[in-house]
Design a protein around this nucleic acid. Structure first.
Ligand code: ZN
Ligand code: ZN
Lengths: 520, 520
DNA sequence: CAGGCATGCCTG
DNA sequence: CAGGCATGCCTG
């Protein structure tokens, strides 16, 4: 379109629409007799400067405390009425407030004079309501006389990385000192909990926040009945924050247990010997969860967290490799970056993905209830990254920890299984089982082995020469190859007889029999 | 900062600054006698609609042609003076104009009536300045009488993918028909070049653009003396656009050749048999380039372009895998995304990286001159991605094409070598050479193998039973293990004697000897 | 650096 | 799906 057209269009539009509006009546014809002389009453020398501070009206819609940053709406002159309107409209404000455990100051601000940590514990180790010290600390509360009681519509902990945490609050009638005191109380509450409860874990759950608000008479808060706790669209997913997650099996008060169909299918196998799943990448596998129903109806969740099996890697979160966390991968379509970092995915829509940064990643889902007549509920997962992925797990062994939890992340049971996401589950399972047997034997053989010692051996068997030797050799000619295997089998046969079927001679013999068959 | 402070600051500032400005004189004291009746002269019925087109002033700062998109600055009413100010400030405008080879239209626009291609060639095959037809075509030039001669500050070709190309121009005093004509002339110039030069390659170099502007009297352009040409930070690098790059060796007029030190080093090896480099990722390797010096001093460049060796992949560009193109990799630090896609890097600072999108990627660098007494110049490269990278080359074979080129990308010579970026160059080289010998034989081994056939064998050797068998077995007891290896060695020993030291019996025997030693 | 394992992937 | 190759990487 040409510029001139644009111009014409704009002029047309403006004029047409202005003319369509109700227009002012014709001006009156005014006949005026005018006589002009200076009005001394309006001279700056008389009335002062034209623009005085008092004349320039200015008011704010929202008040930001000295330590608060955000949008500050000010109205100037005629704008003051708009500002007043906005102010009286009482729209809720949202704050994100950062707290630091172990950093208490006299005025609760980051830069305030520090209270000695010991004193802080003293302050907090007893009932905070009855504490004179506490009252002294909060006496600078400076509550504006004109304001109403704060009313909280929503509160949650949106970040928690000791010693720091961040609380998000939606509220009205708040004032800065109120918010600061609230943070102080959250810390105090947790420290008190730490010293009374034996559990040393610090967590800021929604329940905690609610309890703090309810108990905290000092702060004089109204809590909206519909206050957002977990039903918020961005619900609070409890995380587990241990550097090295515990992986010990623990049945707990509800006899928590997990089961995996030992028969597997073509995409995955389960080794009962190693308690380990071998699975092709991107394949679904199901886990059955069993637990006793408590009398008090607790809503249970199950968390599945992959961790590195070896102690030297256990503290590192297991994250998806570069390739398998690409947003262009089919199974990552539309997922947020955090979730793409998870190697384990649940097929449930209710699954929530937690962890990230340098924290362990895990998926949490509501456990639900067994169907009538069932003792277990089944949940289906899949992995999207292989143990062998160089930019991810990089060939390290991985365990999967299932924990039975309540909505706050309290743990009531734990089960561990090994997991290997690979291309040849069967081969790798067999190999690892063989490897395991080499070093551990298995129940049967073990009792038998004891028998060895007690059994009289023929003089030409050496009781100490029982190490396993893997021989890899290459010969030319099938005839020769068969001859060697036959020879080896013969040797093992003598040993089996001489040593009363003793292991591992017996299994070596059996294997060689199979190998020989394969040459027919 | 407190809200009240902000408010005070604002009021202070506004009042202070208003008061510092020249203020209106005291109002006059006015004595008025008023008599009111309708003023018919102001009635819409008399004077017409309140807001007339003529009253709404509107002017533009920059003029966008009918086919041009971009920001159009319009001033309304009082804004017209601002618009005029901006217009007269003559800031340079930047345009990106797309042209299409083979699509000529009467008015040079994309949607104009097409000129038959044959006619277009007629038009362009002769001197464009003297062409009546050309003058006719440009007679609709519509040059605004008020404007000055266009002045170009910068011009370059920023995209070139036949048949389309995009020219970027910084200029003042331009008008749309001028820009369209310029594009037409660029096409005409190239077609003329194609028909006069024997070389059919079309390229828009900076030299070309300058030549077009200089020659093009019709367009009446001023070229700023400091006009950006090749010294621009983003210089024009000629690209090669063949879907499947040619890979035939071609010495060309200057006897172009490449040499690679056949002795290699610990990080790379060269197979003369396969004309292939085997190299560990991220290792430098050098190529010596040789060519005859022409009488006319041509500035030569060498281009190195990796391509897939197999015909079914040769049309695809060889790009770096996801992992090795991460900006977080040390060797990618600070590189633009395009360059990170290149698997081949030159250590020269003068190297330029071309290609991208679905075009083949290559690195071009000035060849330079041999040092005194030398016949060749050496350039050093390295690869940053392995043949085995799954998200990149994915185990496909890759060739490296070196071409001798001038600054416009005209090719004067070509050499191909195979390349394999891997973790075990020696092993892989040996293997591929063995494989090659198996199918092609080579003087030494082949004659020996022939000898086998001619040699009289003992009756109890089977000439067909010569396959290699890898035997993996497990026995218990060191004594037994040694016995088996000894047995195998004995078998091979007989064969070696019976078959006149024939391979692979001999090497099996040697291996077994070593294995047996390891049991001592 | 050779030997050999680990593990993806191709082939029949 | 088993067998076996391909190829990175670890170990001595
Ligand atoms: Zn992966
Ligand atoms: Zn790579």
């Amino acid at each position: 379109m040409k510029t001139s057209q644009v111009r014409r269009t704009i002029i047309n539009k403006v004029c047409t629409e202005l003319n369509e509006m109700e227009c002012r009546p014709p001006i009156k014809h005014v006949y005026i007799t005018v006589e002009v002389k200076p009005n001394l009453a309006d001279d700056p020398l008389v009335v002062g400067e034209r623009y005085s501070h008092d004349n320039l009206l200015c008011s704010w819609s929202n008040y930001l405390g000295q330590l608060t940053s955000g949008i500050l709406i000010l109205g100037l002159k005629d704008g003051t009425s708009t500002a007043k309107y906005i102010r009286e409209n009482k729209s809720t404000r949202a704050y994100r407030i950062k707290g630091v455990f172990g950093l208490a100051t006299e005025d609760y601000s980051k830069d305030g004079r520090a209270i000695h940590q010991k004193k802080m514990f003293e302050l907090c180790g007893v009932d905070i309501q009855s504490q004179t010290a506490y009252e002294l600390a909060t006496q600078g509360l400076m509550r504006p006389a004109t304001s109403k009681t704060p009313l909280i519509y929503g509160i949650r902990c949106i970040d928690f990385k000791l010693p720091e945490f961040t609380i998000e609050i939606q509220c009205i009638n708040e004032y800065e000192m109120y918010l600061k005191s609230l943070i102080h109380d959250i810390v105090a509450y947790n420290i008190k909990k730490m010293t009374t409860d034996s559990d040393l874990k610090v967590l800021i759950s929604s329940q905690d926040l609610r309890a703090i608000l309810d108990e905290d008479l000092q702060l004089n808060t109204f809590v909206n009945d519909n206050m957002n706790i977990l039903d918020d669209v961005e619900e609070v997913i409890p995380e587990q924050y241990d550097d090295v997650p515990s992986s010990e099996d623990y049945s707990g008060p509800y006899n928590f247990d997990t089961f995996i169909d030992p028969s597997g299918n073509k995409n995955w196998m389960f080794s009962a010997m190693l308690n380990k799943v071998y699975i092709i990448n991107h394949s679904n596998f199901s886990v059955d969860f069993k637990w006793d129903f408590p009398n008090d109806k607790i809503e249970f969740y199950v968390r599945a967290m992959p961790i590195y099996a070896s102690p030297q890697d256990a503290h590192k979160p297991v994250t998806c490799c570069i390739q398998h966390s690409q947003s262009t991968e089919r199974y990552n379509a539309g997922l947020p970056k955090l979730q793409r970092q998870h190697i384990l995915r649940s097929i449930s829509q209710h699954a929530r993905y937690t962890g990230g940064a340098d924290r362990h990643l895990s998926v949490v889902l509501p456990l639900g209830n067994p169907q009538t007549g069932m003792e277990t509920v089944r949940h289906t997962f899949n992995f999207v990254c292989k143990n062998s992925c160089v930019t991810g797990i990089n060939r390290r062994a991985v365990d999967l920890i299932f924990t039975l939890e309540d909505i706050e992340g309290n743990i009531y049971g734990r089960r561990k299984i090994g997991v290997r996401v690979c291309s040849c589950p069967k081969r790798d399972k067999t190999k690892e089982e063989e490897e395991y047997k080499k070093y551990h034997g298995q129940p049967g053989p073990k009792s038998k082995r004891r028998k060895i010692v007690s059994t009289k051996k023929l003089s030409f068997t050496d009781p100490n020469d029982v190490g396993l030797y893997s021989i890899n050799l290459e010969v030319c000619g099938k005839k020769n190859a068969k001859a060697i295997i036959t020879y080896a089998r013969n040797l093992m046969a003598s040993e089996v007889i001489d040593r009363n079927n003793d292991e591992p001679f017996r299994s070596c013999f059996n294997e060689l029999t199979n190998t020989l068959k394969s040459y027919e």
